[in-house]
């Protein structure tokens, strides 16, 4: 899995290694989410899960440009972002299973992963709540003269929150090194974008704050990778924030392992149209057609990831639950610095 790479120049085509890495990251995310779908009926993952199947290209394409010291802010739909940044799947799964060795010692669940060594300083499940945190990380980097950028992921729903607008305004005002990434998957829970916003072009709101912004096909990982390269280079050069609106689609319901069209949450045809545009299959074909990998190579990649995920699930399930006494501990940090 590609967790980081040097900041790509904006124009040259990505190397074969980068392309292989993008595919591997997307497959890793897809198979991780499918593993959750498989184990969820066992009822021992006792927390809500917000799956990102169908949206893998955004996480893979953007985060390939992040360095280990860069910050990443995500949302309740965070699994893909965390994996792409390099967080161990076992630590995430242990958290989802409520185990003491989870990334939050069993206190966070699936909506709140944290991994300081990967620049993930906590994750908010309040829509729009994490956006200003990412701006704050960039402010900290700026004040310390640190060479780090901050990538902030959120959905189209968050772009309706006041915190979104206030955060863009402040990031632009201070010229902070932030890459805002809107994953526009057309739905906030079950509410379609058209029922919520008079103008579906989310990126144009960023332009209103003077932030360079692009709208792109979020299911085309090469397009995402290229745009994110421009965005990261812009932020690293000290030119201020950059905004990407990646148009994509979530295959599963807002929460849980099931599709929701049976319940009438959205048209079946719409889902099936988007599944035809599967970001993973599309890129896998592209890479095989270009001779970068052959079918046997991609199958071997899938098998290796599956084996790693099976091991991660088994390990997580074997870990201990936290002691019940832990529930009352840790409300406050020790006062002494």
């Amino acid at each position: 899995m590609s967790t980081s790479s040097d900041c790509a120049p904006a124009s040259p085509a990505p190397s074969r290694d980068v392309l292989r890495g993008l595919l591997e990251t997307m497959l890793f995310i897809r198979l991780f989410e499918e593993k959750i779908v498989a184990v969820y009926p066992d009822q021992d993952m006792k927390c809500p899960v917000h799956l990102c199947i169908g949206q893998e290209a955004v996480a893979a394409g953007v985060i390939a440009h992040l360095r280990p010291g860069d910050y990443l802010t995500s949302t309740h739909r965070n699994h893909g972002h965390c994996l792409a940044k390099g967080v161990d799947p076992g630590i995430l799964l242990a958290e989802f299973f409520g185990r003491a060795s989870g990334c939050c010692r069993g206190k966070g669940g699936s909506m709140h992963p944290m991994s300081p060594e990967h620049g993930i300083l906590g994750t908010s499940a309040i829509v729009g709540g994490g956006i200003p945190h990412g701006v704050g990380h960039a402010l900290a980097a700026f004040l310390r003269g640190q060479d780090a950028i901050s990538a902030v992921f959120f959905g189209d729903g968050a772009s309706e929150e006041g915190s979104f607008h206030e955060s863009l305004n402040f990031a632009a005002l201070k010229g902070l090194p932030v890459v805002f990434v809107c994953e526009n998957n057309h739905y906030a829970t079950n509410s379609p974008l058209g029922a919520r916003q008079p103008n579906p072009d989310v990126h144009r709101r960023a332009q209103g704050y003077g932030i360079p912004a692009e709208r792109l096909d979020g299911n085309d990982v090469e397009a995402v990778y290229a745009a994110a390269g421009r965005a990261a280079a812009h932020a690293r050069a000290g030119l201020g924030p950059y905004f990407l609106e990646c148009v994509t689609y979530r295959w599963k319901g807002h929460v849980g392992p099931d599709c929701d069209y049976e319940k009438g949450c959205r048209p079946k045809d719409e889902l099936f149209d988007w599944m035809e545009r599967c970001p993973v299959k599309r890129f896998q074909s592209r890479i095989e057609d270009a001779g970068i990998m052959d079918a046997a190579g991609t199958q071997a990649m899938i098998a290796a990831i599956s084996a790693r995920l099976d091991a991660a699930v088994a390990w997580a399930r074997g870990e201990k639950y936290p002691d019940a006494a832990e529930a009352v501990l840790g409300v406050y940090a020790p006062a002494e610095v």
Binding site: L121, P132, H133, G134, A140
Partner: peptide, 12 residues
């Protein structure tokens, strides 16, 4: 958002 920015800076 400015409170959130302060939280984010504190985390940083």
């Amino acid at each position: 958002a400015l409170t959130g920015v302060a939280v984010g800076a504190a985390l940083g």
